[in-house]
Design a protein around this nucleic acid. Structure first.
Lengths: 214, 214
DNA sequence: ATTACTATAATTCGAGTAC
DNA sequence: TGTACTCGAATTATAGTAA
């Protein structure tokens, strides 16, 4: 089986039905292998009818064949089956009034820019803490994309990376966040949103909250 | 980067959060590589924290770590982006009354068992032919799983393989079929269902039909 | 600029086998 | 039975270049 990394690279850059016009050296740079290897691997893909390839001293033009698309699609649906087949659509949690250490954390400038870019909102400086059944949480998160926020350092201290998952709470777009070094027990999650969910949804200790895919 | 094929095999067989109890020889057989290679690759995955591995003279127990799940998820969402982000939800076609060569084809026993198993219905012995815009069809099909029906031989002749896509037409489950050697022009598709769509939906030459994801 | 050939280097694989 | 080590074989990558 020819190189699937390269096949996938072509798919991403030629947009499935288009043509990738480039050079073997450029592709090589992106993949972190040599120009010669790209040249050879492309010819292998061509020989096995996964791509159509025009190469000349001016560069290369590559497009996926139906067979090439088919191979990638097969992989995609295998993975889809793994990640989203039995993923739950929503989970229920119970509000836990915490000391709100998240407030300070979440409003650090090093994070807030990333929140805006990656989640699409500037979070309200405070977190909603929920108690959630562990197993349910696991199968809920299984179907959600991981969003990684990089850690950073200030003069005073360093902040670890954060893993986030886009969700919906009521009508609000929100995110579950897992700071790299969280002090929370495993059945407790932190939720952030553009507004104070606690205030907007009139939540109190032990209120039930539904968290859904987004 | 350690072997992703093996990582994916573990994910499929350990079900993302479970444990795969097996032997290196068994896994090797499934992947078509040697026992020694599986042993080595597993230790590589363990060394890079993609899996937890217990091995003993009794066999192996492997489970994905969070990092391992994360890697696969990353791949999945990259592919999802490729295949389903801009895939269209439905397309419109115009009925073309054909000679109905599909009727005979579709009702051959060699296919009909496969239709039942893979599509979930025994097709009505006739096809609905639609004229469809080529580009729209392409982006519609991009998001749909390919279902492959094997070809077969009878004493008289041989029948080629068929590629099918599960769709919905009106309230009916249906499928677009592409026989391996189709005589149709590229902008014409054949649709099958459990019933006669033409009769049930009262379709005539040039009637408009909406075909949607299913 | 390019692609891609040739020859060598680096890596990966697996047969034999110890435990 | 197992896993996993050693080491030669097979494969894969790339530096140097021709075209």
């Amino acid at each position: 089986m020819p190189d699937e990394k390269l096949l996938f690279f072509i798919a991403k850059n030629a947009r499935l039905h288009g043509t990738l016009s480039s050079s073997t050296a450029t592709v090589a740079e992106h993949l972190g292998i040599s120009q010669q290897s790209v040249s050879r691997k492309l010819r292998e893909l061509r020989d096995k009818s996964f791509v159509e390839l025009d190469s000349s001293p001016k560069g290369i033009n590559v497009r996926l064949t139906q067979k090439g698309i088919s191979v990638l699609k097969g992989r995609y649906f295998e993975m889809k089956n793994l990640f989203s087949s039995k993923a739950t659509e929503s989970i229920a949690g119970k509000v836990k009034t915490g000391i709100g250490e998240g407030a300070y954390y979440v409003s650090r400038p090093g994070y807030s820019k990333q929140f805006r870019e990656l989640l699409g909102f500037k979070p309200f400086p405070g977190t909603l803490n929920l108690i959630i059944d562990q197993a349910a949480l696991q199968s809920f998160l299984a179907g959600l994309e991981e969003v990684k926020l990089r850690g950073f350092k200030t003069k005073e201290r360093s902040f670890g990376s954060i893993t986030a998952f886009r969700v919906g709470v009521g009508k609000h777009r929100a995110a579950i966040i897992f700071p790299e070094r969280s002090s929370h027990p495993k059945n407790e999650i932190e939720v952030i949103a553009r507004v104070s969910l606690r205030a907007k949804m009139n939540l109190k200790e032990s209120s039930k909250v539904k968290v859904s895919r987004c």
